[in-house]
Write a protein that binds this DNA or RNA. Sequence first.
DNA 1: CCAAGTATTGACCGACCGGTACATACCGAC
DNA 2: GTCGGTATGTACCGGTCGGTCAATACTTGG
Lengths: 194, 194
Amino acid sequence: MPWEKDFDMDVALGDAMRTFWAKGYEATSMSDLTKAMKINKGSLYNAYGSKKELFTKALLKYDRDAHQSTLRKLEAMEDPLDSIKGLFEGIVAESIADDQKMGCLLVNTALELPGHTADVADLVLGALSDLEAFFVRRITAGQEKGTIHGSLNPRDTAKSLIAQVVGLRVLARGAFSHDGLNTIKKQAIASIAA
Amino acid sequence: MPWEKDFDMDVALGDAMRTFWAKGYEATSMSDLTKAMKINKGSLYNAYGSKKELFTKALLKYDRDAHQSTLRKLEAMEDPLDSIKGLFEGIVAESIADDQKMGCLLVNTALELPGHTADVADLVLGALSDLEAFFVRRITAGQEKGTIHGSLNPRDTAKSLIAQVVGLRVLARGAFSHDGLNTIKKQAIASIAA
DNA sequence: CCAAGTATTGACCGACCGGTACATACCGAC
DNA sequence: GTCGGTATGTACCGGTCGGTCAATACTTGG
């Protein structure tokens, strides 16, 4: 008896995601969103609820499609050091190619955490703890293989690398030159390579 | 013939600064500002111009009062390593005491750079380059004194430390526990101490 | 004490905000 | 073909946005 939507909810959610990503939550208006998603207001509210709910869904999509899937690919690499190298190289390459200076939606959101609801905060905390666990696993494996310094404390080093990743993504939004970003990457890798 | 303002422009600018700092540029409304500054709309526009101009002035005040003055104090320390230690310790202590999770206005702004005008961007770039120069000077001096690893490249290390400072400030806005922040600090210092 | 000139006040502006209501279009089940 | 139920398009809502303005209050120089 129902009637199928005549737009693809996931595609439109992707459009919303990119809009929030480029402009930030506060600076994005509903009319920005309806324009980007190519649907009308009524459909938007019917399909996704409020602006906040739409944002939460967009962030969740980002977490799955951009964050977690990247970590999974990196984790599949043979040399654990290459996993971590690949992460930093990917971020720098992405940043250089990103002429809109969007950065990373999770990091952008992490900075605005005080202004968001608990479910958004939980999503960000979850993403960060996934990243931390990724680093711990890869550092430990790399130490066993001998390509990562054995003297490092994996948990502490993981936290330090997170800070560097986050810093890199902030600075990539226009504050640092490409050279500067590459330097940060180089230093991060040098600090753990055996 | 004129008439002195009956509020202190710099005090009110401080109120505006703290409001932008806590809530972010976009999320701060003119009525938030008039409330915090305890002046009326007309006076605000008469004294500071537009919202953008007020923000620029507030950011400039932050740069002078919080950023540059801190660097000056730290630079006066005898042991260059203590300067850098002090910087990180100050940030962590500030973050732990900061129950409003305001972070650092310059870093908050750096992440929103694409949405700001060129003069704001220049201010942020200037502040970062001051910080970089501070690190370079202190690292070089510390290497001469022997308290900082002589094998480090001062310029590259400075950029890496900036990334860690920026990451720290982002994560301090609610994403990391106090322990996590302390770990980042500890790792940063350990990475340069001789 | 008056005139010149600035600061303050608060009403007001059009535009846009996020969100809702409702009539209409459309589909599948019977 | 009719009907139940959902999606769509759009007009509309009160509120708030950033910003303006004219009237008024005030201080100081003459």
